[in-house]
Design a protein around this nucleic acid. Structure first.
Ligand SMILES: [Mn+2]
Ligand SMILES: [Mn+2]
Ligand SMILES: [Mn+2]
Ligand SMILES: [Mn+2]
Lengths: 218, 218
DNA sequence: CCTCTTTTTATGGTATACCTTAATTTTTAG
DNA sequence: CTAAAAATTAAGGTATACCATAAAAAGAGG
């Protein structure tokens, strides 16, 4: 396997986890990876030939057992490297993801296991996302999105998607894991959510609120 | 730059350092990388177009300033990762090299600098080879090879080339850095060097003795 | 059932990085 | 000076991984 294939599997896993559906639409993969539908189709056929995905034209793709295992391994590598880069090298929150994106493809099973032990068997990455165990178990993190919060709620940030622009955005506004956001209300016919955090008011769009997960304070 | 190009530059640097000559012969690159002369020629033309090497057909290749800088950066990355893998993850001596071979291509400048500090600014890798500084300075290691030692000499191993089969060979025979080898004599018309180490006699060929560097005990 | 939209396929193209076989050119050594 | 050896170039191929443009097929809604 190479970087392109590994990134496809990882992206497939993430899309099917995020949308909570087994089958992923080619168009969504296309958007997520930034490749044309044509390129995605070509790659899916190759992945299908290698028995990494189950591709039924017009009905979406699904990871096979083998594809799933590989996807989970990549995610494990990615998140472990993020922990290393943050805990040991003190790399900034937004830089982490891009670096891990490269390192994840250059890591053997042995190194991964040793790294896991060395880091103290962490359970989540720096963005709050669960680190799969060596045997592929993944603990489900928070599933409630900020987009689902209602005016009056206090939303506690538990995990955010590894999306570079999102990380930069949050970092700049001091919104980290554990942040308490008071939901003030909606604007722009519901497209925008207005929240307060540390005496600051933020207007957050769907591409932000749908990527942040947490709990409503009770 | 990508992995192929980076490996060419690194190999060029190593060949010109090992042979102590500016210009590297295409045939030697071909052997070192395990590619055909044709492929090497094609790549050298590409590297030349990118101003990374200075290639004069029939007269060898030389790294340009830009090529040299990149080569040294790769070597720095390689050796720092080796230190990390050994010191922090406790990876075995022979496994180090192969893992670092992958990681070196997935490391940004920032990570490299942080890693360097984190590891305590090491001066050499686990095989005794010098780690270039961030500004490209390389301290010259031992240059006397075991092949040059004479019967009666006691040779102290200071550094060995990062050559997977060599590392495996030495590891299996407990010959590590600092080992004291008593040179007993020559065999096979000088092709083989006979040495004693910890009550064991070893018959070492050119591909081993020319890759081990150290001092003669005085 | 039919149209519209989405998805897929068909073609042809690019760049990288390898390969083989066979000239051709240059160097080198006698 | 010349023949042999070494190095390079030529020509054609493979696989990967992307692209664009256009046609065809399938699904979805009314
Ligand atoms: Mn990646
Ligand atoms: Mn993360
Ligand atoms: Mn390498
Ligand atoms: Mn080394």
């Amino acid at each position: 396997m190479n970087r392109a294939e590994e990134d496809y599997l990882k992206q497939l896993y993430e899309l099917s986890t995020n949308t909570q559906s087994e089958r992923v639409k080619t168009a969504d993969l296309s958007t997520a990876l930034g490749h044309t539908a044509q390129s995605v189709n070509e790659m899916l056929k190759r992945l299908s030939d290698k028995n990494l995905v189950n591709y039924t034209p017009y009905h979406g793709v699904r990871l096979t057992k083998k594809g799933h295992q590989n996807a989970v391994r990549m995610i494990r590598a990615h998140r472990l490297w993020e922990v290393f880069l943050s805990d040991k090298l003190d790399l900034s929150w937004e830089a982490l993801h891009e670096e891990a994106e490269k390192l994840e493809h250059a890591t053997s099973e042995v190194v991964l296991d040793k790294l896991y032990t060395y880091l103290g068997k962490p359970k989540t990455c720096i963005h709050g996302n669960p680190i799969p165990t060596a045997d592929g178990q993944v603990v489900q993190g928070a599933t409630l999105t900020l987009a689902q919060a209602e005016p009056g709620d206090v939303f506690i940030v538990r995990r955010v998607q590894d999306h570079a622009p999102l990380l930069t955005y949050l970092q700049a506004r001091d919104i980290a894991l554990g942040a308490r956001l008071s939901v003030v209300g909606h604007e722009s016919l519901g497209d925008t959510l207005v929240v307060k955090h540390q005496n600051q008011t933020h207007r957050l769009g769907q591409s932000i609120t749908a990527r942040m997960f947490g709990d409503i304070e009770t």
